[in-house]
């Protein structure tokens, strides 16, 4: 806790602007330090250390590839421009962003409750906690993503490198989206510990509602099937695919897959939907957080 403090309740005070500046730079440093704390402590006391951040996704990819690619034979198209036609890559290009999303949301959600010891003893802007937690995971995400990009460059050709700016932009939007969700959930978690268990289930549901282990064309087929079975909405086919595409994670994982697997720019609709989602969720998250965070310490 630094700065000329203008304590809560008095929104005006001497030296406010100077205090604001100093507080700002101090917060940035604290954010960085807390992020580094997470990053450093993540794999402490493990023999393999940071390697785990590669082994984990690799193992998941291997398992899902065997189950869904080899046993269940989830039908996939070859990459549009890359010509790659391998389920493991199809899966990895969406699974890695998804793992980040689910991991970041879950970790960010628990960041306030998990740091109650700190919150009840020291003052610092509370928003730093969920944000630093997510930023720490972003570091891992960025490493995984660059590794994946490198692999795709080897497998499908160096054209994938042209999409680097797109990947970075999409990563930024994803991080913003996750921060927004985590801000809301971290507060909800303080008031209702059930949130965690509820989210465990919801994340599973969300995983299967996102085209990660299957191609989105399956949903178009499903929509047809449903119509043929006689399920309609005002005479039109039930707009399953449209609803499906409102899911931000569909767009996010789709965009990553488009760039990394198909070597194709995501559609402008993808960009638009993801941007709107990220902006709206962050705005709402900040609103909720600001509204409730003042009393959070008492509830811990």
């Amino acid at each position: 806790m630094t700065s000329d403090v203008v304590a809560p309740g008095s929104r005006r005070g001497p030296g406010r602007s100077r205090a604001g500046e100093r507080k700002h730079s101090g917060s940035r440093e604290l954010l960085l330090n807390l992020t580094m704390r997470e990053v450093r402590s993540q794999f402490k006391r493990t023999a393999l250390g940071r390697l785990w951040s590669f082994i984990n996704p690799l193992a998941t990819i291997a398992i899902y590839s065997i189950v869904f690619g080899f046993i269940l034979r989830s039908p996939i198209e070859p990459g549009v421009n890359s010509g790659i036609h391998l389920f493991a890559f199809f899966l990895a290009t969406a699974l890695i962003p998804w793992s980040f999303m689910s991991g970041a949301i879950m970790a960010g959600m628990g960041s306030i409750v998990g740091n109650s010891g700190l919150l009840t003893k020291v003052y610092f802007p509370r928003v730093i906690l969920p944000v630093s937690t997510i930023l720490a995971m972003t570091v891992t995400f960025a490493i995984e993503l660059s590794l994946l990009t490198a692999i795709m460059a080897v497998v499908g050709g160096p054209e994938v490198l042209l999409f680097l700016p797109g990947l970075i932009a999409m990563m930024a939007l994803t991080v913003i989206f996750c921060i927004g969700i985590a801000l809301m959930l971290s507060i909800a978690m303080v008031y209702f510990r059930d949130t965690q268990h509820f989210m465990n289930i919801f994340i599973q549901l969300w995983f299967y509602a996102t085209p990660i282990i299957y191609a989105p064309t399956l949903i178009v087929q499903l929509q047809e099937t449903v119509r043929n079975d006689g399920w309609t909405l005002f005479g039109e086919p039930f707009p399953l695919f449209m609803l499906y595409n409102l899911n931000p994670s569909t767009r996010i994982t789709g965009a990553f897959r488009s760039m990394l697997y198909d070597f194709q720019w995501p559609s402008w609709q993808d960009w638009a939907v993801v941007t709107v989602w990220a902006g709206a969720v962050l705005g709402l998250g900040l609103l909720v957080f600001r509204r409730f965070s003042a009393r959070v310490v008492e509830e811990l």
């Binding site: 806790m1 630094t2 700065s3 000329d4 403090v5 203008v6 304590a7 809560p8 309740g9 008095s10 005070g13 001497p14 919150l119 009840t120 003893k121 020291v122 003052y123 003042a294 009393r295 310490v297 008492e298």
Partner: peptide
């Protein structure tokens, strides 16, 4: 210390705390 926020009133502190 700003850990708790008062419901009413204000606290002004001058200097690093």
């Amino acid at each position: 210390a700003r850990i708790l926020e008062p419901n009413e009133g204000s606290i002004t502190a001058r200097g690093r705390m």
